[in-house]
Design a protein around this nucleic acid. Sequence first.
DNA 1: AAATAAAATTAGGTGTGTCTAATATAAATT
DNA 2: AATTTATATTAGACACACCTAATTTTATTT
Lengths: 217, 217
Amino acid sequence: MIHSFSEENYLKTIYLLGSGGNKISPTAIADALQNNPASVIDMLKKLTDKKLIIYDKKKGARLTASGIKAAIEIVRKHRLWEVFLLEKLGYKWDEIHSIAEQLEHIGNPELADRLEKFLGFPDYDPHGDPIPKADGKIADAFKTMLGEVETGKQYSVVAVKDTSAAFLNYLQKLGIGIGSRIKVIEKIPFDGSLIVQIGKNLNTTISNKFAENVLVG
Amino acid sequence: MIHSFSEENYLKTIYLLGSGGNKISPTAIADALQNNPASVIDMLKKLTDKKLIIYDKKKGARLTASGIKAAIEIVRKHRLWEVFLLEKLGYKWDEIHSIAEQLEHIGNPELADRLEKFLGFPDYDPHGDPIPKADGKIADAFKTMLGEVETGKQYSVVAVKDTSAAFLNYLQKLGIGIGSRIKVIEKIPFDGSLIVQIGKNLNTTISNKFAENVLVG
DNA sequence: AAATAAAATTAGGTGTGTCTAATATAAATT
DNA sequence: AATTTATATTAGACACACCTAATTTTATTT
């Protein structure tokens, strides 16, 4: 089954809104898609006809099995392309999302699998979101903040939350990137500062605020 | 200036048809695009309004300076993505074109340059067509058939023409891929067969037909 | 419960890019 | 040159995905 660019965006949006457990209303979708509830209703009808969703005014929109399958494929491609853009093309964290929103719609049956292999089967994208596997299985969202990990244990940086230039520059200065090995040596109770070990560099002190923006696993 | 997916396809088509030196008529474009001359006329009007082409019934369609610039950008992206798909994702020669037709429309100002750098600034795509540089400069089409080269001189395989499974399997069996070093030792006048040296393997005999489908430089 | 506010829906319309069918123009053949 | 054939063009229509404005339904206040 082939879906249009636009249909794919609706499926993805419904899927992502659904993970929050909330009711997926036309207004919620319109809000996410930055368009009009009337447009959403039109598309909900079309997706219902194609048996990709079930829509009920009370319960909102819910994906059918084939709708979930299609949505996960798109999310999978999106997150794989994000890894590619960051790791291979050197884009910054805050630039990859919008490009991946285009790339996720490229259609070829083998593309996701080949890309995944080329990237070394990454489990998480640079924002810390799990990359669905070819069979549709998805790991738990991996979102442990550096500020919350156990002292003395070795972790890998899997993603960052802030995308400001100031933050990214500071990351670079500290020599932290995705995949960097990091260990919290000591937590300072007074202000939540952390004394950490980054790779081989011993005893770097970082602020609480900084630690909240680094996701590790 | 941002152009639609469809406009980009017209610009690219006009550009590629133009390289043959022929008059670019609405029917020729419709033929290349597999659509209707009436649709083409509509689009020619739009492209004329946008000053991307000049259309004259007698002379056909011709790209303006800005039209050429836009077209070359698309061709550049197409050919870079083809290299990526072949070399990095391991697609076969005959699979990459249709995927690149989609990828060429991904819009981001830095994408072509970053991709080009990642691929090591390739000069030709896997079909032997030159990849336009960032400044729009394009090398001569590189299309010397193995059957026409000088005896005794070392060449590199830059592309292949045939895309059949039979041909590609045979290529693999002979140990020939893009970048393979090849030297013609002797040409047999009777049937045009060639005795060649592939890499370190001495004295492999290949047919005339085979040699016509291997492009070297 | 009535009034008000918010959300869902319908009706009708728009731009884009396509189409078919009809007509006009140009080219080729006799 | 007249006829036939091919090409170019116009006119009108359609699917897609969106829009605004009006209406209905549902939820929230009072």
